[in-house]
Protein backbone atom coordinates (compact mmCIF):
# COMPACT_ATOMS: atom_id res chain seq x y z
CA UNK A 1 0.00 0.00 0.00
CA UNK A 2 1.22 3.47 -0.78
CA UNK A 3 1.07 6.15 1.87
CA UNK A 4 -2.12 7.89 3.01
CA UNK A 5 -4.22 4.82 2.28
CA UNK A 6 -4.21 5.17 -1.48
CA UNK A 7 -3.22 2.62 -4.04
CA UNK A 8 -2.94 2.31 -7.77
CA UNK A 9 -4.93 -0.44 -9.44
CA UNK A 10 -5.14 -1.63 -13.01
CA UNK A 11 -8.15 -3.45 -14.27
CA UNK A 12 -10.30 -3.91 -17.33
CA UNK A 13 -13.61 -2.09 -17.29
CA UNK A 14 -16.10 -2.95 -20.03
CA UNK A 15 -13.25 -4.14 -22.22
CA UNK A 16 -10.90 -1.20 -21.70
CA UNK A 17 -7.75 -1.20 -19.55
CA UNK A 18 -7.85 1.41 -16.81
CA UNK A 19 -5.35 2.60 -14.24
CA UNK A 20 -6.81 4.29 -11.15
CA UNK A 21 -5.50 5.87 -7.98
CA UNK A 22 -7.98 4.77 -5.34
CA UNK A 23 -8.76 5.18 -1.66
CA UNK A 24 -8.31 1.65 -0.27
CA UNK A 25 -11.39 2.04 1.91
CA UNK A 26 -13.67 2.48 -1.10
CA UNK A 27 -15.90 -0.25 -2.43
CA UNK A 28 -15.91 -1.14 -6.08
CA UNK A 29 -19.38 0.44 -6.21
CA UNK A 30 -18.01 3.78 -5.01
CA UNK A 31 -15.04 3.76 -7.34
CA UNK A 32 -17.12 2.82 -10.38
CA UNK A 33 -19.64 5.56 -9.67
CA UNK A 34 -17.43 8.35 -8.38
CA UNK A 35 -14.24 7.91 -10.39
CA UNK A 36 -15.54 6.40 -13.60
CA UNK A 37 -19.06 7.83 -13.73
CA UNK A 38 -20.57 4.36 -14.20
CA UNK A 39 -23.81 5.31 -12.51
CA UNK A 40 -25.74 2.26 -13.67
CA UNK A 41 -24.25 0.63 -10.58
CA UNK A 42 -26.89 1.49 -7.96
CA UNK A 43 -26.70 1.46 -4.19
CA UNK A 44 -29.81 0.07 -2.50
CA UNK A 45 -28.51 -1.23 0.81
CA UNK A 46 -24.69 -1.01 0.87
CA UNK A 47 -24.41 -4.36 2.65
CA UNK A 48 -25.04 -6.96 -0.02
CA UNK A 49 -28.74 -7.55 0.58
CA UNK A 50 -30.47 -6.14 -2.49
CA UNK A 51 -28.26 -6.77 -5.52
CA UNK A 52 -28.84 -3.36 -7.15
CA UNK A 53 -25.07 -2.90 -7.44
CA UNK A 54 -24.43 -6.27 -9.13
CA UNK A 55 -21.54 -6.28 -11.60
CA UNK A 56 -19.43 -9.04 -13.13
CA UNK A 57 -15.85 -9.51 -11.95
CA UNK A 58 -14.08 -12.04 -14.17
CA UNK A 59 -17.59 -13.00 -15.28
CA UNK A 60 -18.70 -13.83 -11.74
CA UNK A 61 -21.71 -11.91 -10.40
CA UNK A 62 -20.83 -9.93 -7.26
CA UNK A 63 -22.35 -7.20 -5.11
CA UNK A 64 -19.98 -4.32 -5.77
CA UNK A 65 -21.00 -2.56 -2.52
CA UNK A 66 -19.23 -5.23 -0.45
CA UNK A 67 -16.38 -5.84 -2.85
CA UNK A 68 -13.38 -3.64 -2.16
CA UNK A 69 -12.15 -1.74 -5.18
CA UNK A 70 -8.58 -2.94 -4.53
CA UNK A 71 -9.70 -6.52 -5.09
CA UNK A 72 -10.52 -5.61 -8.70
CA UNK A 73 -6.81 -5.16 -9.45
CA UNK A 74 -5.85 -7.27 -12.46
CA UNK A 75 -9.42 -8.37 -13.04
CA UNK A 76 -12.05 -7.85 -15.70
CA UNK A 77 -15.10 -5.84 -14.58
CA UNK A 78 -18.35 -5.56 -16.53
CA UNK A 79 -21.24 -3.17 -15.89
CA UNK A 80 -24.40 -2.59 -17.88
CA UNK A 81 -22.79 0.42 -19.57
CA UNK A 82 -20.70 -2.00 -21.62
CA UNK A 83 -23.56 -4.22 -22.76
CA UNK A 84 -25.20 -2.13 -25.51
CA UNK A 85 -22.89 -1.74 -28.49
CA UNK A 86 -23.19 0.30 -31.68
CA UNK A 87 -26.61 1.58 -30.63
CA UNK A 88 -27.84 -1.98 -30.25
CA UNK A 89 -29.05 -3.47 -26.99
CA UNK A 90 -27.66 -6.79 -25.82
CA UNK A 91 -29.99 -9.76 -26.09
CA UNK A 92 -30.68 -9.59 -22.36
CA UNK A 93 -31.39 -5.84 -22.41
CA UNK A 94 -33.72 -6.25 -25.38
CA UNK A 95 -35.60 -9.07 -23.65
CA UNK A 96 -36.12 -6.89 -20.55
CA UNK A 97 -37.54 -4.12 -22.75
CA UNK A 98 -39.78 -6.41 -24.79
CA UNK A 99 -41.18 -8.38 -21.85
CA UNK A 100 -42.05 -5.32 -19.76
CA UNK A 101 -39.53 -6.39 -17.11
CA UNK A 102 -38.64 -2.79 -16.27
CA UNK A 103 -40.62 -0.50 -14.01
CA UNK A 104 -38.82 2.03 -11.83
CA UNK A 105 -35.57 0.72 -13.28
CA UNK A 106 -33.43 1.02 -10.16
CA UNK A 107 -32.82 -2.71 -9.79
CA UNK A 108 -32.67 -3.18 -13.57
CA UNK A 109 -28.92 -2.77 -14.25
CA UNK A 110 -28.09 -5.25 -11.48
CA UNK A 111 -30.71 -7.69 -12.72
CA UNK A 112 -29.45 -7.43 -16.28
CA UNK A 113 -25.95 -8.31 -15.12
CA UNK A 114 -27.38 -11.24 -13.13
CA UNK A 115 -29.22 -12.51 -16.19
CA UNK A 116 -26.22 -11.89 -18.44
CA UNK A 117 -24.06 -14.01 -16.18
CA UNK A 118 -26.76 -16.69 -15.96
CA UNK A 119 -27.28 -16.84 -19.71
CA UNK A 120 -23.56 -16.94 -20.48
CA UNK A 121 -22.92 -19.58 -17.84
CA UNK A 122 -25.68 -21.85 -19.12
CA UNK A 123 -25.41 -21.26 -22.82
CA UNK A 124 -27.31 -23.90 -24.75
CA UNK A 125 -28.71 -25.54 -21.60
CA UNK A 126 -32.38 -25.94 -20.83
CA UNK A 127 -33.26 -24.24 -17.56
CA UNK A 128 -36.37 -24.63 -15.43
CA UNK A 129 -38.27 -21.70 -13.96
CA UNK A 130 -37.16 -22.83 -10.51
CA UNK A 131 -33.51 -22.67 -11.57
CA UNK A 132 -34.00 -19.19 -12.96
CA UNK A 133 -35.73 -18.05 -9.77
CA UNK A 134 -33.05 -19.52 -7.54
CA UNK A 135 -30.22 -18.04 -9.55
CA UNK A 136 -31.73 -14.53 -9.47
CA UNK A 137 -32.80 -14.62 -5.82
CA UNK A 138 -29.94 -12.32 -4.77
CA UNK A 139 -31.50 -9.41 -6.62
CA UNK A 140 -34.52 -7.71 -5.10
CA UNK A 141 -37.23 -5.94 -7.07
CA UNK A 142 -40.18 -4.27 -5.39
CA UNK A 143 -42.06 -3.22 -8.55
CA UNK A 144 -42.52 -6.25 -10.78
CA UNK A 145 -43.10 -9.26 -8.55
CA UNK A 146 -40.36 -10.73 -10.81
CA UNK A 147 -43.01 -12.03 -13.25
CA UNK A 148 -41.86 -10.26 -16.38
CA UNK A 149 -38.22 -10.61 -15.40
CA UNK A 150 -38.78 -14.35 -15.39
CA UNK A 151 -40.25 -14.11 -18.89
CA UNK A 152 -37.29 -12.04 -20.08
CA UNK A 153 -34.79 -14.58 -18.74
CA UNK A 154 -36.71 -17.46 -20.28
CA UNK A 155 -36.73 -15.66 -23.59
CA UNK A 156 -32.94 -15.32 -23.52
CA UNK A 157 -32.44 -18.96 -22.59
CA UNK A 158 -34.89 -20.17 -25.24
CA UNK A 159 -33.42 -18.01 -27.98
CA UNK A 160 -30.06 -19.65 -27.28
CA UNK A 161 -31.61 -23.07 -27.57
CA UNK A 162 -33.12 -22.29 -30.96
CA UNK A 163 -29.76 -21.21 -32.35
Amino acid sequence: MTSHGFREITFSINGKEKKLHIDVRKSLLEVLREQLGLTSVKQGCAVGECGACSVLVDDVLIDSCIFLAVWAHGKKVRTVEGEAKNRKLSKVQQAYVDEGAVQCGFCTPGFIMATTSFVEKHKGEKKTREEIRKDHAGNLCRCTGYQNILKAVEKCINSDLVK
Binding site: S40, K42, V80, E81, A84, Y96, V97, V102, G105, P109
Partner: peptide
Protein backbone atom coordinates in the same frame (compact mmCIF):
# COMPACT_ATOMS: atom_id res chain seq x y z
CA UNK B 1 -38.08 4.98 -20.65
CA UNK B 2 -37.23 1.30 -20.99
CA UNK B 3 -34.09 1.76 -23.07
CA UNK B 4 -32.76 4.51 -20.81
CA UNK B 5 -33.20 2.13 -17.89
CA UNK B 6 -31.74 -1.07 -19.36
CA UNK B 7 -28.66 0.79 -20.54
CA UNK B 8 -28.13 2.38 -17.13
CA UNK B 9 -28.30 5.81 -18.73
CA UNK B 10 -31.43 6.94 -16.90
CA UNK B 11 -30.23 9.43 -14.32
CA UNK B 12 -31.52 9.13 -10.77
CA UNK B 13 -30.91 11.67 -8.02
CA UNK B 14 -27.64 10.09 -6.88
Amino acid sequence: DAVAKVTGRAEYTD
